[in-house]
Nucleic acid binder design. Structure first.
Lengths: 218, 218, 218, 218
DNA sequence: TATGAATGAGAGTTCATTCAT
DNA sequence: GATGAATGAACTCTCATTCAT
């Protein structure tokens, strides 16, 4: 195996960089204009290339958008895992999990991509391949939650409630609150959503939590 | 007042009937194909008229779709109120409220319009006039919830928790569970979502509730 | 012959009034928006009736527009003749003729119809029935000019040049100057056009004419 | 500078050729069908391309038509200047000028574009950007005329009348006669219009001119 | 790899005209 | 005489996609 080939497998070539650049541009455009109003030309314009090149890389628009969704989910998940692993206790991890979803300054989304998941839900509802991506993503996160809760229970931090049902309820609450925030509900600020959710979670799992912990900047 | 005049005020004219017919057709098509893929021709085809007639009534496609959203929200709200008023206790009303949102056979949506609100959320995120409709609708329902909870508290049915915060939490949970159902999450059936939500609600408000009440058909 | 029938032939019935009203409205709209951009709905709107009624009276849009052109030409011609007949000398008549064509405050056009003839020329170039109307109108005016010039020659007011050729030249000059005015040529004011044309005419026919006669207000 | 670069600057690229081809086709269609009845599809059909390509080059129909007018004026002017420069005396130039405007076989219009300027006048009357093009064109020609007359006066060919006023009168007469020809006035043939105009011009500038000079072919 | 030229298949909208009332 | 409802036939413009270079 020559060194050149070895490099091709490990270092991202120009093609991979281009792909990633296009995917990121796609996410930005989708977030700004909405999934349905995203045109290939918008994405090409954003990085100063021709629309034909986008098709050259992704074959069809549909493929590009599906890949973009996958790229988004993977990036988000990786970052989430990374943060979890840095925290010592189950309670701190749970808090980080809620904060990632509800507090803008702790959200791992790339800049200006705040509405993406909402658009993705709509796509998932009618497009089977998007639905599959979402299903896998949901599963992953629910596993994270269940594992996290069980670890807390074993460590004596949390009460012994049924973890899977709790994971469903908590996911639903996070999603619901995130929708309110995304649609700029006037009575729900990020801080309030965060506090409400943490109170709910702490109540269910019987661990001590007070909003003071969030700090004034949150 | 002659009978003719009276009829003119109460009976909808041919124009009003057409309008309503088009709005209902629009809701069906949006639900099936998604907001963005809804074409004027689809709506016209569905009721066997020419696309030009749709424009004749609504001036632009955008106007039609915005009116359709309003029509949907108003119809839903009216039906919800009607059902609430038929029930004797606050607990029963709360249960009806949850059932309307989570159990398909108690959902007041017209046939085949199960995904509408998800599409509407996406529209609301970027279209100010749709956002206004949604905001008003949210307010109305939260008022219903708060009033309902306070009535239950005064009647001694519910514990004395803070009603507005409960309304936010409960709305969020309903929305979140509805999303899971809409996207056919394999671990969340309507019955399970309903039971989970009712348990949560009963726990918060400290009233007795058991899934048995749902009945075998649900 | 009953009185009713007699009246029908002499007094304009409601139908004739409607027709005239529509023709006048058509002329206004054509002048404002241009022949090609005139829609039946514009004309109907202007007099507060339905477009269907316009078709009821004129059968087709084309018919209406052709009739409007004829109506315009006839009205203009009648007013021109009326003015000519009130003036004593050939020189005065010639001056009135030039003034009618070049000075806005002596132009017999209905309000806001200053560009009509330009649009009519374009129609005449491609529509044979409009061409016929224009040809007849041209002939009439050239006859008026020739008769006028010959009367002046017989009265000793004018030099004995060939009248028909003069009529052609003078018509051309009037048309050409009118175009400059209509298109708001910055170096040609109505007064200048009038003075230039009268100088030309007086030079050809050898009669005395000085711009002083126009007066400061013209 | 390599030859390749030099060629790039002088030879028109494929895009420029296409543009010019479309502009010429547009002029033909406008002349045949009239400005208002010119459809993008007509122009595309004429050169065997798709309507979408027309939009690709000109963005909107309006842009195409405005560009076509400009193209026409520039081409006409360039050809006029070229001819003027080939002639030795002011009188010969003046004659060429009149002939270009009135005699079909000396008119520089591309084939089948005889009615264009009439349509352009109507557009100029209501469309400011077209009006600007026409104004500039008028100015250019009037400057040519004034310069020409003054050169003739200095050379002793012409009488010393005021050149600017003469330019206005002569332009008006040319326009007026051209209208008569365009609308196929039965009493005005190109030859007669030419002779009348030259007699007028020769009379004003006091130079000798006889129709014999036109020759039998004119 | 990268692009500009080119297209086909719509999509929304306009508008003269018809017709039952 | 008068209208509102309804339509068919255009027409402009959009956009993903192809292809030669």
């Amino acid at each position: 195996m020559t060194e050149q080939v070895a490099r091709a497998q490990t270092e991202p070539g120009i093609a991979d960089q281009r792909r990633a650049q296009m995917l990121r541009a796609a996410l930005e455009v989708i977030s700004e204009r909405g999934f349905a109003d995203t045109r290939i030309a918008d994405i090409a314009d954003r990085i100063g290339i021709s629309p034909a090149l986008v098709i050259y890389y992704f074959k069809t628009k549909d493929q590009l958008l599906t890949d973009a969704i996958r790229y988004y989910e993977d990036t988000w998940y990786a970052e989430g895992r990374r943060r979890m692993e840095m925290l010592p206790t189950a309670a701190r991890r749970l808090e980080e999990f809620v904060a990632m979803n509800l507090l803008p300054d702790r959200n791992p989304d790339p800049d200006g991509t705040a509405l993406l998941w909402l658009d993705f839900w709509v796509q998932a509802a009618r497009n089977p391949s998007v639905a599959a991506v979402r299903r896998k993503s949901d599963e992953r996160w629910r596993d994270v939650l269940v594992t996290l809760v069980r670890a807390g229970q074993e460590a004596g931090e949390f009460a012994g409630i049924e973890a899977p049902s709790f994971a469903v309820l908590m996911s639903a609450m996070l999603d619901g609150l995130a929708v309110q925030l995304a649609l700029r509900d006037p009575v729900v600020s990020p801080q309030r959503a965060f506090a409400l959710c943490m109170s709910f979670v702490a109540g269910q799992l019987r661990f001590a939590w007070s909003p003071a912990g969030v700090g004034p900047g949150a």
